[in-house]
C-alpha cells in the first residue's frame, strides 16, 4: 500500500488537511440556512476531501474508507430523505410545507425543515459526486507498443 499513490509529503499533508476539509463541508451544510452555503456547496466540499485522498493515496485506500456500494446507497437514501421531508408537508396542507417550529433567527435550530433538507441534499451530493468521480477514476489508459489502450477495472485489488 505504501508504494502506491503520490509521495510521502503529499500523503502527510493530505492526512492533516482531510479532517479540516470534512469539518468545513459539514459546517457549510449545517449553517446553510443562516449563512451562505448549503447542501450543495457543503456536499461538494465533502467530496473534495475524499478526492484529495483518492489522488494522494490511490483508489484502494479510499474505497476501504468509503466503499462505492455504500456511497451509492447513501446517494439513494439522501434523495429519498429529501422526498420524505417534502411529502411530510402533506400533513399540514401542502407539498414542501415547512411544518417544524421556526425557532429564533440566527440560531442553529431555526428555519424548520430547511436544515433537514440541507443535510439530506449534502448527503446526496457528497455521495453522488463521489460515486461519479470514483467511477471515472476506474478507467485506465495503458501504453503498449501498438498505441494507447483502454482498460476499465471494477475490481481495484487486481491492478497491482
Amino acid at each position: 500500500m505504501n508504494n502506491k499513490g503520490m509521495s510521502e509529503i503529499v500523503k502527510g499533508i493530505a492526512r492533516i488537511v482531510f479532517p479540516f476539509i470534512l469539518l468545513y463541508g459539514l459546517s457549510l451544510i449545517l449553517y446553510g440556512h443562516i449563512t451562505p452555503g448549503g447542501g450543495f456547496s457543503g456536499g461538494v466540499v465533502l467530496t473534495g476531501g475524499f478526492v484529495l485522498l483518492l489522488l494522494a493515496f490511490g483508489k484502494d485506500y479510499v474505497f476501504r474508507i468509503l466503499p462505492v456500494d455504500i456511497a451509492k446507497a447513501l446517494d439513494s437514501a439522501g434523495a429519498l430523505g429529501f422526498l420524505a421531508i417534502a411529502l411530510l408537508g402533506f400533513l399540514c396542507g401542502s407539498f414542501f410545507y415547512n411544518l417544524l417550529p421556526k425557532g429564533y433567527i440566527f440560531h442553529l435550530w431555526s428555519a424548520g425543515t430547511i436544515i433537514l433538507s440541507n443535510i439530506m441534499i449534502g448527503l446526496k451530493i457528497a455521495s453522488g459526486l463521489f460515486v461519479a468521480i470514483a467511477v471515472l477514476s476506474m478507467a485506465r489508459l495503458i501504453h503498449t507498443k501498438e498505441g494507447i489502450k483502454y482498460k476499465q477495472s471494477r475490481k481495484t485489488e487486481e491492478d497491482q
Binding site: 448549503g38 450543495f40 459526486l129 461519479a132 467511477v135 471515472l136 478507467a139 489508459l141 498505441g147 494507447i148 483502454y150 476499465q152
Partner: peptide, 27 residues
C-alpha cells in the same frame, strides 16, 4: 444560478464519462 450550476455539473460529468467510453470504443 445554483440550480443551473448543478445542471452544468451533471452535463460535464456525463460528458466526461461518455468521453472515456468513446475512447474505449474508438481509440
Amino acid at each position: 444560478v445554483l440550480t443551473s450550476i448543478v445542471i452544468d455539473l451533471a452535463f460535464v460529468a456525463f460528458l466526461a464519462a461518455l468521453a472515456i467510453r468513446l475512447f474505449e470504443r474508438y481509440g
